[in-house]
Amino acid sequence: MIKSLLMSLVCLIVFNLYLLLFDQKIEFENILYIDFLIGLILIIWLIWEITKRRNFQRLKKELCENPNQEAAFLLEDFENSDICFHDLKVYENRLRIEKNRYQDLENSIVNQIHEIKIPLSSLYLQNDDLQNQIDNTLLHLRDSQYGLSVEEIGMRLKDLLRDQRSQYDQMNRLLNLMLDSSRISSELTEIRIRKVPLKSLISRAIKDNSYRLIHYQFSLSLPEEELIVCSDDHWLSFVLNQLIDNAIKYRSENPKLSFSMEKIPGFVYLKIKDNGQGIASEDLPTIFEKGFTGTNKRNQKIKSTGMGLYFSKMILEKMQSSIDVESKKNEGTQFVIKIPINEFELWKENKIEDNQTFRK
Rank of each mutant, 00 (worst) to 15 (best):
N55L: 09
N55Y: 05
F56T: 01
F56I: 01
F56L: 12
Q57M: 08
K61W: 07
K61L: 11
K61D: 14
K61E: 15
E62R: 15
L63C: 04
L63H: 03
P67L: 12
Q69I: 05
E70A: 07
A71D: 04
A71G: 02
L74V: 03
E76T: 02
D77N: 11
S81R: 09
I83Q: 09
I83H: 06
I83Y: 06
C84P: 00
C84A: 11
K89I: 03
V90F: 04
V90S: 11
Y91R: 15
N93E: 15
L95H: 03
L95F: 04
R96A: 13
E98G: 00
K99S: 09
N100V: 00
N100M: 08
Y102A: 07
Y102T: 04
Q103F: 03
D104S: 12
D104N: 13
I109D: 10
V110R: 15
Q112H: 10
I113T: 12
I113E: 09
H114G: 04
H114I: 08
E115P: 00
E115A: 13
E115V: 04
I118D: 14
I118Y: 13
I118G: 05
P119E: 10
P119L: 12
L120N: 12
S121E: 14
L123R: 10
L123H: 10
Y124E: 14
Y124K: 10
L125I: 03
Q126P: 00
Q126Y: 03
Q126V: 00
N127H: 07
D128T: 01
N132G: 05
